[in-house]
Structures are given as C-alpha cells and as structure tokens.
C-alpha cells in the first residue's frame, strides 16, 4: 500500500538533499518510487517500451526540478504521478495487450498455468473495458483500484476536489460493471 503521508518528509528531504549534492539520495528515491511509477505507466500505456520511456522522462523532470522544490508544497510521489499522467496523455493509445506475450511475467510459483491465463484474460477484459471510459474516470479508477492511492492523493494528482474524485471513481466503476457484463463475448473472458 502506498503511504505517502509517512514518507512525505523523507521523500522531500531526499529530493532536497539531491539538489544540494547528495547523489545517494537519487538512488534511494529511485528505489522507493520507481516500482509504483513504472506500474502506473505500464497500466496506462500497455507496453513495456513506452512505459520505460515515460518513467525515465518523468524521473528526468524530477531531477531537473529538484533545485526548485519547496518542502511541504506537495508530495514527491503525487508530483511524479501527475507528470506521468500528463506524459501518458501525450502518448496514450488503447492498451496494446497483444504485447502481453512479450512482457516479462512476474515469477509466481504458486499459480499454475491455467490460473495465469485466466488472469491474463481478466486483465485484458479490464483494460479493454477501461478504454471505453472517459479519460478522467479511467484515470481515477486506475489510481484508486490498481495503483491503490487514497482519494486525497488522487485529488492532488488530478487537481480536483476529493468529492469530485469520489464521484468519478463511483461512476467509472458503475460503467465498468455495465461494460463487462454487456460485452462479455467481445471482451473474450469467461468467468463462471
């Protein structure tokens, strides 16, 4: 679970330390933030190459912005999410889930092959359904239920009120349910 509030000061301190000459701070920040940022970019764009490009570009913007960073202004993580979101909008295309075969599959010895296939079908169905949502609804649902951010964090990323985020998420989920139920054959999954 992403807990920005506990790490806020630490991320801020690391970024300011980097701006003041501490190279190790960049390494610590990268190790802390890279997994979530990369995952978000991958789920937005649907392929590894674009996700890597966008992630690298977002971190480069962060390094360049570091000297101007003001502590307590915002969370470093939510700032990065916002940058990635804007970069993804520029590059956005429908999630090319055909590339799932080229993706490095996570090592999970507990799942048998059929379970993995089912999960892949569900993921494909989810992203196909999400591509039919409005952009803001899609982003809110992804940030809330896949990236597991809190509503205040999502509000900061999307520059909306918390109430607006809750409304977007609720409407997005209702729409997703409707799409998944009515487009079951086209989406190609077969949940019992």
């Amino acid at each position: 679970m992403f807990d920005g509030s506990q790490k806020k000061e630490t991320d801020d301190v690391l970024l300011i330390a980097f701006a003041n000459g501490d190279r190790q701070a960049a390494q610590q920040l990268t190790e802390r933030l890279l997994p979530k940022i990369y995952a978000h970019a991958y789920h937005r764009l649907g392929n590894i190459a674009d996700a890597e490009d966008v992630t690298q570009e977002a971190f480069l913007k962060l390094w360049k912005f570091a000297p101007k960073w003001k502590q307590d202004r915002a969370q470093v993580s939510t700032w990065l999410y916002r940058v990635v979101s804007n970069l993804c909008k520029d590059r956005y295309r429908r999630a090319s889930l055909e590339n799932l075969g080229n993706a490095q599959e996570p090592i999970d010895g507990t799942q048998s092959a059929p379970d993995k296939i089912d999960e892949q079908y569900r993921q494909k169905a989810l992203y196909d359904a999400m591509s039919m949502l409005q952009e803001n609804q899609r982003l809110a649902v992804q940030l809330r239920h896949i990236d597991e951010l809190t509503n205040p964090q999502i509000a900061e990323i999307m520059e909306l009120s918390v109430e607006a985020v809750e409304s977007l998420t609720a409407r997005g989920k209702r729409k997703l349910i409707e799409i998944l139920q009515t487009h079951k054959p086209e989406l190609g999954y077969n949940d019992g």
Binding site: P106, E119, D191
Partner: peptide, 15 residues
C-alpha cells in the same frame, strides 16, 4: 466481481 478484475490488473505488471 470487479475486485477480481482489479486484482488481475495489478498482478501482471512486468518486472
């Protein structure tokens, strides 16, 4: 049902 889809969405992030 939606949770199952969201779990699938989270689980298959490449390394």
């Amino acid at each position: 049902n939606l949770s199952i889809f969201f779990e699938a969405g989270k689980s298959l992030t490449p390394e």
